[in-house]
Structure formats: C-alpha cells, structure tokens
Amino acid sequence: MRAALALLKRDVALAFREGGAIGTALGFYLVVVAITPLGLGPDLNLLSRIAPGMLWVALLLAALLSADRIFHNDYEDGALDVLITGKLPLPLVAAIKSLAHWLTTGVPLALLAPLLGLLLNLPAQASPHLVLAMLFGTPAVSFVAAIGASLTLGLKRSGLLLALLVLPLYVPVLIFGVATASAAIAGPASPWPPFLMLCALSLASMVLAPLAAAAALRTALR
C-alpha cells in the first residue's frame, strides 16, 4: 500500500515539475475550443447547441496528446523495468499510473471546461452537469488511454497511432458524456441515466483496462 502511494505521489510530482506537462494540455484545450467558433461562425445559438460536444471532443484530444506520458518517460529511463521486476503487481502499477494521469490531466481539464464553455455560450444551468460528467467520465478516458500508451510504447509515430487505436474506444464515453449535458440544457429527459452509464463505463475501465495495459507492457518489454 505504501509503495502504491509512493508511486502515485511520484507520478503526480513528476507531472507537476516536468516543464509544462499539465499546462500544455490545458493550452491545447483552450486553442481547440477557441478556433471552433472561427470555423463555424459566431452564431451564438449554434455555438450553445454544440458546446457540450465540442468541449468533450476537445477534452478527449487534449487527454490523448498527454497520454504517451503515462509510460513513455519511465520506459526511456529504465524505471519501468524496475517497476516490472518490483513487488507491486503490474496491473496495479498500470492502474496507479493511469490514476496519476487522471489527477493531472482529466481533473484540470474538467475544471477548466465551464470557463471555456463561456466562449461557446454554454447555457449556465448546464455547466455543473458538464463538469460533473467530465469528472466522472475522465477516469475511463485516462484508463483506456493507458492501454493505447502501453501498446504503442517505443514505436515510431506512436502519437498518431495512439489516437487511431484509442479514439474509437472513446465513442461510448463521448455519447453518454454529451447526453448528460444536453439533457440538462434541453430537457425533458433527466440527465442522470446517461450520467450513471458514464460512471459505469469509468468503473468498468478502472477494473479491466489495467489488466490489458499490464499485458501490453509485458509484451513491449520482453
């Protein structure tokens, strides 16, 4: 347990101290959201209708861009070999590193979303629902991203490949995430059923994804 906590602390500290790891993802998020109205025209009604979807898509892209951070640095400097031969079970290592990615990427991105929602004329009453959906949906994003990151470890052009592998797996998260916010905006359906589906997706991927990621890590490092 202490080893697990130490690993979590180390990963979070590394993310904060490594130059601009979190800031870059937030900056990317801001840029994607900012260029959308330039492409679509400044029609506020249209923007407020597509705001939840745009915010979610931008969040997924921003989270994906930082996903190779989950294992890549430890792979380069050999720390991953130490972790594999260490006492912690490998799925637990993968789970902790995914959790660290969620804490340093998913949570900040979700908290930034209502601010960016102002740029897209997101209706104010939907903001809490959107943040809540993002906070509870991004664990699935981080844990599934860890599968992609472990599969593409040490490959050339791993960033593009990672996106191609992982984005199709995000479709359910995207659908239920947007459905939560859209129901809060337009009604009459309750926003809670899609929200609960989102929580279920997160819980399931927190249990299953580390197993797949650990198997992929063993494949990459043998």
Partner: peptide, 15 residues
C-alpha cells in the same frame, strides 16, 4: 507499426 512479428501479434491480440 511493430516490426517484430511476435510482439506485433501479442499487442494486436490485446487490442
């Protein structure tokens, strides 16, 4: 993307 057939096969199997 993975040149070594053994690793490619196992990685693709997981995916």
């Amino acid at each position: 993307a993975i040149e070594e057939p053994g690793r490619a096969g196992r990685a693709a199997a997981i995916l």
